[in-house]
């Protein structure tokens, strides 16, 4: 190799290698800063099974929720394993902002109207914030029994109940999310000899995705001030549930098995009468459909 040739080879080598490094360098320069990635879709719906989830509806989205619980499976073939009886809640939830939502619903059990407001205080961010925290406040108005049907007069305030809760959830990876939610339920009118006006509970819920559109869920709500030795009519249990979430475009189908007939938090926490371990289990579902009401921007 002549000196001129080797020089040419050297220079071209430097140029080529430098060019290929530089090409990557431009990209490297653009990706120096870590991206701020909020963690989304911790749960598929605003409900896990019976209880609420940390999820809020995005701004301008209206969700129609149609929930159903059938009778007890252990009633057997005579009631077609509970399918003869149906308890229904129809609800709407609207996202005012990505973090602030309001909801309205009506449940056939007790003919109760419920309204709530939820606000996402913190959003999980990769490398910045480990959890998502949402607060939720509910007001329930029980319209049953009618004043005219009641022996003693019922005041409006007697029909009210309030629920306040803090939902804390973390999506550990693409598939697994876990949530804890301490909550307090206040019922204005109870049978004070055997019940308390204020009840405390701690919910624990989890979700594991099997495919990107299918997930299994579980939920347990511990009552923290359960009274032992209640008379038979007042025996209550912790609400337990297992379910499957199926998502198809704008719909989420949640098929559930639970010992609770409650479709609102008050009833789930304080009025669960089924003993899960003795097979007092109800089949049910929550179906949601989301509509986008606002246009872009």
């Amino acid at each position: 190799m002549t000196p001129m040739k080797s020089l040419f080879a050297f220079v071209s080598l430097v140029t080529i290698s430098h060019a290929s490094i530089a090409q990557g360098e431009l990209l490297l320069e653009l990706t120096k800063e870590p991206l701020d990635v909020p963690v989304i879709a911790t749960f598929k719906g605003t409900r896990v099974i019976n209880g609420q989830s940390v999820e809020t509806k995005p701004r301008g989205s209206l969700e129609f929720i149609f929930s159903h619980r059938f009778g007890r499976i252990n009633e057997g073939a005579y009631t077609l394993w509970g399918l003869d009886d149906a308890f229904v809640r129809l609800g709407l939830e609207y996202g005012i902002t990505d973090r602030l939502g309001v909801g309205l619903g009506r449940t056939s059990v007790d003919k109760t109207f419920d309204s709530y407001i939820r606000y996402k205080l913190l959003q999980q961010h990769i490398g910045k914030m480990p959890v998502t925290i949402t607060t939720l406040g509910t007001l329930n108005y029980k319209t049953s029994p009618k004043n005219s049907d009641s022996i003693e007069p019922i005041k409006t305030t007697d029909r009210l109940a309030y629920v306040a809760q803090l939902l804390i959830a973390r999506k550990f990876n693409q598939n697994f999310s876990l949530q804890v939610n301490p909550l307090v339920v206040n019922r204005n009118r109870v049978n004070q000899t055997v019940e308390t006006n204020t009840d405390f509970a701690l919910g624990i819920a989890g979700r594991h995705k099997i495919t990107r559109s299918l997930a299994i869920t579980g939920e347990y709500i511990f009552r923290l001030n359960d009274k032992p030795n209640s008379p038979p009519d007042y025996i209550r249990y912790d609400a337990i549930g297992f379910g499957i979430d199926i998502e198809t475009g704008g719909h989420v189908f949640q098929l559930v098995f639970t010992n609770s007939l409650g479709l609102i938090d008050r009833a789930v926490v304080t009025e669960t009468t089924g003993n899960f371990w003795e097979g007092d289990i109800h089949f049910g579902f929550n179906i949601t459909r989301t509509f986008q009401l606002t246009r872009k921007k």
Partner: peptide
């Protein structure tokens, strides 16, 4: 050098339907 590079943060695509954006 005619070199060019682009970086696009995927979660900044804005959809009309927010649920679609999430999916």
């Amino acid at each position: 050098t005619h070199e060019i590079a682009f970086v696009i943060p995927n979660n900044q695509f804005q959809f009309e339907k927010k649920l679609m954006q999430q999916h």
